[in-house]
Amino acid sequence: MESHYKGKTGFKRVVNAFKYSCAGLSAAFRHEDAFRQEVFLAIILIPLAFVIESQLLGRVLMISCVLLVLIVELINSAIEATVDRISLDDHRLAKRAKDIGSASVLVCLLNLVIVWVLVLLS
C-alpha cells in the first residue's frame, strides 16, 4: 500500500517536500547529538574555507566535504531510527546496520580531514 502523499504533483509536491525536509533537519538537530556537533563544525569550517587562501576548486572541495558529512549523518540517523522502530532487541543484523552506518560517517570525516589537509598544503 502506497502513502496517500504519493499522489501530490506539481508545486504542491515541491512545497510538501520542502516542509518534510525542514522537519527532518529540525528533528535531526533536536534528537541527534552527533548531527548537532557536525552542524557546529560546519558553522566553523564553512566560513573558514572562505578565509583560507586557496583556489576556487579547493574551497569547493572543502565545503563539499563538510556538507557530505552532514548528509551521511542524516542518512545514518535515519537508518538508526528505522532499526530502533523495528525492534529495540539486540540483534546481530541490527547491530551490523547501525555499525555500517556509523562507519560511513567515519569515512566521511576521514575524507574531510584528508581533503582539508591536502588543500591547505597545496
Rank of each mutant, 00 (worst) to 15 (best):
residue 42 A to T: 06
residue 20 Y to C: 07
residue 44 I to H: 00
residue 38 E to V: 00
residue 57 L to K: 03
residue 46 I to L: 08
residue 70 L to I: 07
residue 75 I to R: 01
residue 55 Q to D: 10
residue 15 V to T: 01
residue 28 A to V: 06
residue 40 F to V: 12
residue 50 F to C: 14
residue 49 A to F: 08
residue 19 K to W: 12
residue 29 F to N: 08
residue 46 I to P: 00
residue 67 L to S: 04
residue 72 V to M: 12
residue 26 S to N: 11
residue 34 A to S: 14
residue 64 S to Y: 14
residue 59 R to N: 02
residue 13 R to I: 00
residue 63 I to V: 15
residue 38 E to H: 10
residue 26 S to D: 10
residue 10 G to E: 04
residue 39 V to P: 03
residue 11 F to W: 09
residue 26 S to C: 07
residue 37 Q to Y: 08
residue 44 I to Q: 04
residue 41 L to N: 08
residue 66 V to W: 00
residue 46 I to R: 00
residue 27 A to N: 14
residue 32 E to N: 15
residue 29 F to Y: 15
residue 10 G to P: 04
residue 48 L to T: 12
residue 40 F to C: 10
residue 48 L to F: 12
residue 67 L to H: 03
residue 15 V to F: 02
residue 24 G to L: 04
residue 44 I to F: 09
residue 15 V to R: 02
residue 9 T to H: 06
residue 65 C to Q: 02
residue 51 V to Y: 10
residue 17 A to F: 06
residue 16 N to I: 09
residue 31 H to N: 13
residue 59 R to H: 04
residue 65 C to W: 01
residue 47 P to V: 01
residue 32 E to L: 12
residue 27 A to K: 15
residue 37 Q to T: 08
residue 68 L to I: 02
residue 31 H to C: 07
residue 18 F to W: 11
residue 40 F to P: 02
residue 20 Y to V: 11
residue 28 A to H: 12
residue 50 F to Q: 12
residue 49 A to L: 11
residue 66 V to A: 00
residue 56 L to K: 01
residue 43 I to W: 05
residue 21 S to K: 08
residue 54 S to Y: 01
residue 44 I to G: 04
residue 60 V to R: 03
residue 69 V to C: 15
residue 61 L to Y: 10
residue 19 K to F: 14
residue 58 G to D: 04
residue 33 D to M: 13
residue 70 L to P: 06
residue 68 L to C: 02
residue 46 I to N: 01
residue 53 E to W: 00
residue 68 L to W: 03
residue 23 A to H: 10
residue 56 L to W: 02
residue 61 L to N: 10
residue 16 N to A: 12
residue 61 L to T: 05
residue 29 F to R: 06
residue 17 A to Q: 07
residue 59 R to K: 15
residue 22 C to E: 06
residue 60 V to M: 02
residue 66 V to F: 00
residue 44 I to M: 05
residue 60 V to E: 04
residue 46 I to H: 02
residue 45 L to V: 07
residue 19 K to M: 10
residue 24 G to F: 00
residue 39 V to L: 11
residue 63 I to C: 11
residue 72 V to K: 09
residue 50 F to V: 07
residue 68 L to A: 02
residue 51 V to W: 09
residue 25 L to G: 11
residue 61 L to E: 11
residue 17 A to E: 10
residue 38 E to A: 08
residue 37 Q to H: 08
residue 30 R to E: 15
residue 24 G to N: 11
residue 40 F to Y: 13
residue 21 S to D: 07
residue 16 N to R: 13
residue 51 V to Q: 02
residue 56 L to M: 09
residue 29 F to H: 10
residue 34 A to K: 14
residue 38 E to M: 10
residue 61 L to C: 15
residue 12 K to W: 09
residue 27 A to C: 07
residue 63 I to D: 04
residue 45 L to N: 06
residue 38 E to C: 07
residue 69 V to N: 07
residue 51 V to C: 08
residue 53 E to R: 01
residue 13 R to A: 13
residue 20 Y to N: 13
residue 50 F to E: 11
residue 12 K to A: 14
residue 30 R to M: 13
residue 29 F to E: 04
residue 55 Q to K: 06
residue 64 S to M: 13
residue 22 C to A: 11
residue 30 R to F: 13
residue 23 A to F: 10
residue 13 R to E: 09
